[in-house]
């Protein structure tokens, strides 16, 4: 067990003020479903960390709302809150599926979307969905100084991200373009059906026009050090009719693009063929093509 000092403030202003004064990195905690485990096992990731700042009491970070361009999600929203939210269900069903696949009910009641992003695990479940929806993050330094990152750019590698030591994640915003007609899918594989870290996931959404794919994004999870769109497969599919053989070919491209990047590892003989199949299953599901 690693021991730490605990801080919590009533207002956002005080919270940012506190952050500003710190010489070293402070761990920001909201749900704690990842962080407490790291503290409990005195993880090397926590070297030089001796302070924890709890933001879970700040109501401003728990809001979900929309305007004409964006849906805004407070980082302290729990997975359960997202699953139950009408706006998210309407526009971003793949994010709902991703949240539903996390841990177990208790984890989902406690864990937050902001935590899932900032923890920046390669197997974070909400991240492929957020990347596929082109989500952006608002980072707050002062109450006025704000940096904005795309989620895919924010995460730099396993457990590494752009967050500065005097900064906190303030808001996740997702553009609403074409949301009405989009098709969505989130497909996940774990060793168990609950309480299981993702082995492979595939998240995608697409827009059809005259039976042809007008726009498509495909983002795999738990296979790359950082999250990204499968550009090659997306370009290949754009303008084509979503037929089984076309999707099969696109799935091969997904697997190829991923494993060209990561190279051969202990798990590659398994993960490569399975990623291909998972991508195929996800795409077929999205375009409502039956496979048995």
């Amino acid at each position: 067990m690693k021991y730490f000092d605990y801080f919590s403030f009533d207002t956002l202003g005080e919270t940012l003020e506190f952050l500003k004064k710190q010489k070293h990195f402070v761990k920001i905690i909201s749900g704690g479903t990842d962080l407490i485990i790291e503290f409990r096992k005195n993880s090397p990731k926590l070297e030089n960390i001796d302070k924890v700042l709890d933001i879970s009491r700040l109501r401003v970070l728990k809001v979900i709302e929309e305007d004409n361009d964006y849906v805004y999600i407070g980082p302290s929203c729990t997975h359960t809150e997202i699953v139950k939210n009408d706006i998210i269900n309407k526009y971003f069903p793949a994010l709902v599926e991703a949240c539903l696949s996390i841990g177990c009910l208790q984890t989902r009641n406690q864990g937050t979307i902001g935590g899932n992003i900032v923890n920046s695990s390669p197997s974070a479940d909400t991240v492929p969905a957020l990347v596929s929806y082109n989500a952006e993050l608002e980072l707050l330094k002062d109450e006025n100084i704000e940096r904005i990152f795309k989620v895919k750019d924010f995460i730099k590698g396993p457990y590494k991200n752009e967050l500065a030591k005097d900064e906190m994640l303030y808001c996740i915003r997702i553009p609403k373009d074409n949301t009405e007609d989009r098709l969505h899918v989130f497909e996940k594989l774990g060793r168990r059906n609950a309480l299981s870290i993702t082995r492979i996931s595939v998240c995608a959404n697409a827009l059809l026009e005259d039976g042809k794919i007008k726009k498509i994004t495909i983002v795999p999870g738990a296979v790359l050090p950082r999250f990204k769109n499968m550009k090659i497969a997306e370009d290949f599919l754009t303008g084509k009719k979503p037929q089984k053989e076309v999707l099969r070919e696109a799935s091969e491209l997904v697997a190829k693009e991923v494993f060209d990047e990561v190279g051969e590892r202990w798990s590659t003989p398994y993960k490569k063929p399975v990623l291909e199949k998972m991508a195929f299953v996800a795409l077929c599901k999205m375009f409502k093509i039956e496979i048995i």
């Binding site: 695990s121 197997s123 396993p158 060793r191 738990a222 296979v223 798990s267 398994y270 399975v274």
Partner: peptide, 22 residues
């Protein structure tokens, strides 16, 4: 009989860390 056994015919040796099996 794990996932790897079914797909590749054998168990694969792993050195895994929590949070990532990648």
């Amino acid at each position: 009989i794990d996932l790897e056994t079914i797909v590749t015919g054998k168990q694969l040796k792993r050195k895994q860390k929590r949070g990532s099996e990648a």
